[in-house]
């Protein structure tokens, strides 16, 4: 059993120093017509490289591009699909972060690759493997305003059409060389009755992934009610948020998972640094019961909910804890 360290998704795109304020300033100037699209892309590239460098320097084995270009987890992909426009703000789960709601007015169709170029740039900038992150179809659908009558009558079809777009992105990312592709489906924890639909979407993604492995990540809720189904799903890696249910460690250990796990044992949403002893005890319970060859220790969620200095501290703590396991 190898225990690797991984990032979960987003990373702060701002910080204290002037170079880390570049993206915020450039977006403001771009919005007022003082900067070009090329300036904006250059600023996004610079902050992406900075996010990758911090993850690598912290010692992570698997990093992300920090989702620096993402306006939010929903509209970044949904807003680029045919027949989907972007509407007003809504709170993203129980955070105080807000996303723009997609409005679906016709059949959802993928027209162009959204993440491939972002992934290729990140991979070129990283000495460690980069894990691209996609928001899954159920979460996209649950956060959409549906004004297209066929979808109003048939939510499943909306999910499947969103999923076809996600599958196209998975194909592109796999073709570009991604070895692990993360699919975020936090909505399944609010809506466990859709578990069969989640399995169906993952099955379709599994047939699009080529040589890549799919990492399903669920967060912002307690996965215990659907744990066994998640562990039996067509994902190669199942990644869980342990911050909502103190009893989850025992549940996971008792399930004797055959799959690789993403262990979100460090709270991605609170600055308080975890006591290594508590995390090590959890790992001692879970890892011996897991029949996979490797698992990932990671934050419970993306880290852009933390200030940058605290996000970096969290990653360093994560790596330090893993190193204690290794020793």
């Amino acid at each position: 059993m190898r225990l690797l360290t991984a990032s979960t998704g987003s990373y702060p795109r701002i910080g204290k120093t002037p170079d880390l304020q570049l993206l915020r300033q450039t977006i403001a100037q771009w919005e007022s017509g003082k900067k070009t699209e090329a300036d904006l892309k250059a600023a996004e590239d610079a902050l992406t490289r900075a996010a990758i460098a911090e993850q690598v320097d912290a010692g992570l084995d698997l990093v992300t591009d920090g989702q620096i270009r993402w306006y939010d987890p929903i509209s970044h992909l949904a807003g680029k699909l045919e027949n989907v426009s972007i509407n007003g703000l809504l709170r993203f789960f129980d955070t105080n972060f807000y996303f723009r709601q997609p409005v679906v007015r016709g059949p959802v169709r993928w027209t162009r690759a959204v993440l491939r170029a972002e992934y290729e740039l990140a991979r070129a900038a990283s000495p460690k493997p980069v894990k691209p992150v996609l928001t899954g179809a159920i979460t996209l659908a649950r956060h959409s305003i549906v004004e297209y009558p066929p979808y109003q009558k048939d939510f499943r079809q909306l999910v499947l059409d969103y999923n076809e777009a996600v599958a196209q992105e998975v194909r592109e990312l796999a073709a570009a060389g991604a070895s692990v592709i993360q699919i975020d489906e936090p909505s399944i924890l609010q809506d466990p009755s859709s578990i069969r639909l989640l399995e169906e979407t993952l099955q379709a993604l599994a047939s699009s992934k080529g040589a890549a492995r799919l990492a399903l990540h669920v967060y912002f809720g307690d996965p215990a009610p659907v744990l066994e189904r998640l562990l039996a799903s067509p994902a190669d890696i199942v990644s869980l948020d342990f911050t909502y249910n103190p009893g989850l460690v025992e549940r996971v250990a008792a399930a004797r998972p055959a799959k690789a796990l993403g262990l979100g044992l460090l709270d991605g949403r609170n600055t308080k640094l975890e006591d290594p002893g508590g995390v090590l005890r959890a790992l001692d319970r879970i890892l011996p019961q897991t029949r996979a060859e490797e698992c990932y220790l990671q934050p419970s969620s993306g880290l852009e909910y933390l200030p940058r200095d605290r996000a970096l501290e969290k990653l360093k703590r994560l790596v330090a804890i893993r190193n204690q396991v290794r020793n």
Binding site: R24, F97, R100, Y305, D309
Partner: peptide, 11 residues
């Protein structure tokens, strides 16, 4: 604490 994002380009 230091800055965190609220939405879009707001921190």
């Amino acid at each position: 604490g230091d800055l965190v994002r609220s939405y879009g380009n707001r921190y």
